[in-house]
Computed example of a mutant assay.
Amino acid sequence: MEAFLTAFDALPEGASDGRFEGRRYILSKSLHAGGASQKLVARAVDGTDYISLNLYRLRGGRALLRPCEMPERKVCDFVLGLVRDQ
């Protein structure tokens, strides 16, 4: 989870883009409740994939990952493997 959080925190708030497994994605990262809740939505430009997750920052430095209707492994692989366009 630590590597995931490091990669997730490196993503900028707002819109950005990048590549994962040969596909280009448009991303949107938003903060809610003063940063206690974060949302990431990513769509493949070619329309073949969609990623959506909520991340909750709990007391004591813990984090709770809640993918939206997809396996946790899928969102973790995406965040860890994403290469942002410069």
Rank of each mutant, 00 (worst) to 15 (best):
G35S: 10
R57N: 02
S52C: 11
S30V: 14
L27D: 09
A15W: 11
G61D: 02
D49T: 02
I26M: 11
S28D: 15
S16F: 10
L55Q: 05
D17E: 15
R62Y: 03
G60H: 02
G35I: 02
D46F: 03
L31K: 08
R43P: 00
G35Y: 04
A15M: 14
L27M: 09
S37G: 06
L55I: 08
V75S: 00
E21M: 12
A15L: 14
D77S: 11
G60L: 03
R43G: 12
P67C: 01
G61M: 03
R59F: 05
G60R: 05
R19Q: 14
G60F: 03
G61S: 01
L64D: 14
K74C: 00
E72D: 02
R59L: 12
L65H: 04
E21F: 02
G14N: 09
M70R: 09
G61R: 04
N54E: 11
R19W: 15
R59P: 13
Q38G: 04
K39I: 10
S16Q: 11
L27E: 12
R73Q: 03
S28K: 15
G61Y: 03
S16R: 11
R59W: 06
F20M: 12
E13R: 15
S30D: 11
E13N: 13
S16E: 04
A15P: 04
L55S: 01
R66Y: 02
A44W: 06
L27I: 08
T48Q: 05
L27H: 12
D46W: 04
E69G: 00
V75F: 02
R73S: 04
S16K: 08
C76S: 03
R73K: 14
